[in-house]
């Protein structure tokens, strides 16, 4: 049975690379009342950074766009992070989820974004539609 969130925040921001650090700081500040461990904060900062970077680089291809972030937690310390864009969508989701696969031919991006998001959280869901956008939802249960 789904638990009702006890606290929720929404954040909407420009898809600019300078906002990658702001997004991860904002989310980690919001979960502070749960008194997470240093490792948990690091994991959450990393996965937010990955998802927001994907919006900037891939969804909007470094042009204009908005990123919509929703973070909530319930009384069992389950933190849910939803990061949504209205960008180009992912052509081949299965391929994008493979470690080391990157759409960037220069090879300067590790191709590890989804692998990191999935291994640093308990659950990763990606919904995408070509030309409409992508929503990444991650759930992490804090100790």
């Amino acid at each position: 049975m789904k638990k009702k969130p006890v606290n929720e925040m929404r954040l909407e921001l420009d898809a600019k690379s300078v906002n990658e650090s702001f997004a991860r700081y904002a989310v980690s500040a919001f979960i502070c009342p749960l008194d997470p461990t240093v490792g948990e904060v690091a994991d959450i900062r990393t996965v937010v950074s990955e998802a927001v970077t994907n919006c900037v680089v891939h969804a909007y291809r470094e042009t204009e766009g908005r990123i919509y972030i929703t973070v909530s937690w319930d009384d069992s310390r389950r933190v849910k992070i939803k990061i949504k864009d209205k960008g180009c969508g992912i052509e081949d989701l299965e391929q994008s989820m493979q470690p080391f696969w990157s759409s960037d031919p220069s090879g300067e991006r590790g191709g590890m974004g989804f692998t990191i998001m999935s291994s640093f959280t308990d659950k990763l869901t990606v919904r995408t539609a070509k030309g409409k956008g992508t929503t990444v939802t991650m759930v992490k249960k804090l100790v």
């Binding site: 650090s21 991860r24 690091a42 900062r45 990393t46 950074s49 990955e50 970077t53 090879g107 300067e108 991006r109 590790g110 191709g111 590890m112 974004g113 990191i116």
Partner: peptide, 15 residues
């Protein structure tokens, strides 16, 4: 702090 961009930076320099 370092995310996969840091990883890409390191692997790119390695190459």
């Amino acid at each position: 702090f370092m995310d996969s961009a840091g990883l890409g930076l390191i692997l790119g320099r390695y190459a």
